[in-house]
């Protein structure tokens, strides 16, 4: 429930303790989700057999279900969910727009275009063992971000968030048009594969993709760690932030680059999974207020929890069939967010 209205009138110290408690609660929730999700699944496995050292791993079906089928995708869900939610927070603050998502600036369209080109034309490009589709989607994401950034800094000194936003939205439509065109050239099976990619899939079935994404996510997380105070001031407007000693351009640049990096890595790992980047930050703001020092880490934790739970549903509900996780996040997230919007009267202020 909303904490800030309740704690009005309480001393600042008590309020701070309360926010910290909520913070730790979110962290525990994420840890709990990551620990429990691998235990849940359509197949009953025996934990004793999973960790039985007397059975060779190659022969141990339960261990393989646990360590190959469930654990990597749970971890992937946590990383992708956390990254998308955190990137959402940062971009909403940077653009000072509550509707901003990690995909607003063209990242997902760029990534989709990259994936689509590789799927359609069967380009066998790989780099250091990274398969073609994740690689191409990451490159596509960064290319889109590069174009948007170039446009936003071209016209004048500094980074125009208006241009950023408009260029991102335009690029999204332009890339979508190119995607449709490429799809038109593709044959049916390829189109289907490409459409399926867009729905998101965390079934990585090895730890390798996590290791590729991890360095980029860590760099982004490091950058995020230095941002909250500046973001708090930035949301008040660039002038007042500058007046309080914030290097606005540097902050904007850092926020933009780190959010894009996190989003690009997340999309390469799990596909453009929607809704997390918008509903999780708003939900957190409703719960603990707008201070980015708390909103950012709490959103990352809640995003991780949310995606891990959704993915557990994706692989369990219709077993042996797999449901697209992006469809689940949207179907759970959309109505829930609308409900919040209506009951909380227009979202957080």
């Amino acid at each position: 429930m909303g904490l800030l209205p309740v704690v009005a009138g309480v001393t600042a110290g008590a309020r701070r303790r309360r926010v910290w408690a909520v913070q730790i609660g979110f962290l525990l929730l994420a840890v709990l989700a990551v620990l429990c999700a691998p235990l849940v699944g359509p197949t009953a496995i025996s934990l004793r057999q999973v960790f039985d050292p007397t059975i060779a791993f190659a022969d141990n079906v339960d261990a393989q279900i646990f360590f190959i089928a469930r654990l990597p995708r749970t971890l992937a869900g946590a990383l992708v969910g956390g990254a998308l939610a955190a990137a959402g927070v940062v971009l909403q603050a940077l653009l000072r727009n509550p509707l901003a998502t990690p995909f607003t600036l063209g990242v997902s369209a760029g990534a989709s275009l990259g994936a689509m080109l590789v799927i359609t034309f069967g380009l066998p490009l790989t780099l250091a063992g990274i398969p073609a589709v994740p690689l191409a989607s990451f490159v596509g994401a960064l290319a889109a971000v590069g174009v948007v950034y170039g446009l936003a800094t071209m016209r004048r000194q500094g980074l125009s968030t208006n241009v950023l936003l408009l260029a991102g939205v335009t690029l999204n439509s332009l890339f979508s048009a190119i995607i449709l065109f490429v799809q038109y050239l593709a044959d049916f099976t390829q189109s289907f594969q490409a459409i399926r990619w867009v729905m998101g899939n965390l079934d990585v079935s090895s730890y390798q993709p996590l290791l590729w994404a991890l360095p980029m996510l860590l760099v982004a997380a490091g950058a995020f760690a230095g941002l909250p105070r500046a973001l708090n001031l930035l949301t008040l407007g660039t002038d007042s932030a500058a007046a309080r000693g914030i290097d606005v351009l540097r902050t904007q640049r850092l926020a933009f680059v780190s959010a894009s990096l996190a989003t690009g890595a997340a999309v390469a790992l799990g596909g453009p999974i929607g809704f997390i980047g918008i509903i999780v930050p708003h939900l957190v703001r409703l719960l603990i207020g707008a201070d980015h020092r708390f909103v950012l880490p709490a959103s990352a934790c809640l995003g991780a929890t949310f995606l891990v739970v959704c993915d557990t549903a994706a692989r369990t509900l219709l077993s042996p069939m797999e449901l697209p996780v992006g469809v689940i996040t949207a179907m759970l997230g959309g109505p829930f967010f609308l409900w919040l919007l209506v009951t909380r009267g227009g979202g957080p202020r």
Binding site: G41, P42, T43, V61, I65, I68, P320, M321, E322
Partner: peptide, 13 residues
């Protein structure tokens, strides 16, 4: 057609 997770492939054996 059935879309499969690694787990359902392992289970189907």
């Amino acid at each position: 057609s059935v879309q499969l997770s690694s787990e359902s492939i392992l289970t189907a054996a």
